[in-house]
């Protein structure tokens, strides 16, 4: 089966088993390894991508259901010269540790700040619930996110 989808604004064609999870299409077929496959059960959030603008766990999405969809991944969010607001806050506050959960967290929280530009701490924590981090204990990440509340959120 052949599926056509747009990945980071570029048309890509996938031929193969339509049940293949999107995360495997990205990582194994397109060799875009920024999206991380960690739990493969939809719990950890490390594989979050945007599908037609909505953050979704790519491990739970069979590629066959995505014909014609627009997928944005961590590779398409920003350039090395211009991080988005969430990435910049994480770097400025030096909150990254092993880094495996951060691509997914950036995807979730970048979208969240488009829908809520001035959330309070509890709202940020609630939005983070689907993104598990084993290293940091979260609070410094929340501190970083609190710092961008009034800024213009970038996609």
């Amino acid at each position: 089966m052949t599926i056509t989808l747009t990945v980071n604004r570029e048309e890509r064609i996938f031929s193969g088993d339509p049940r293949t999870p999107l995360v495997d299409v990205l990582r194994d077929h397109l060799r875009m390894t920024g999206t991380k496959a960690v739990c493969r059960e939809g719990f950890c959030g490390a594989c979050m991508v945007h599908v037609d603008g909505a953050p979704m766990a790519s491990c739970l999405l069979p590629v066959g259901s995505l014909d014609g969809a627009a997928v944005n991944t961590i590779e398409g969010v920003a350039t090395r010269e211009h991080l988005n607001a969430v990435q910049q806050a994480f770097e400025d506050h030096d909150v990254v540790q092993c880094g495996m959960c951060f691509p997914g967290m950036v995807m979730t929280m970048s979208r969240f700040f488009q829908t809520n530009t001035s959330p309070d701490r509890d709202e940020i924590k609630a939005a983070m619930t689907g993104n598990i981090c084993r290293c940091t204990g979260y609070e410094r990440i929340i501190d970083a996110l609190m710092s961008i509340r009034t800024n213009e959120a970038t996609p």
């Binding site: 920003a78 090395r80 991080l83 770097e91 990254v96 880094g99 495996m100 951060f102 950036v106």
Partner: peptide
């Protein structure tokens, strides 16, 4: 190493392939 980790560019052992 933060920036590449935040951009999804860091290659961990699981990312070695091809």
């Amino acid at each position: 190493d933060a920036r590449d980790k935040l951009l999804g560019r860091t290659k961990y052992t699981i990312d070695v392939g091809g």
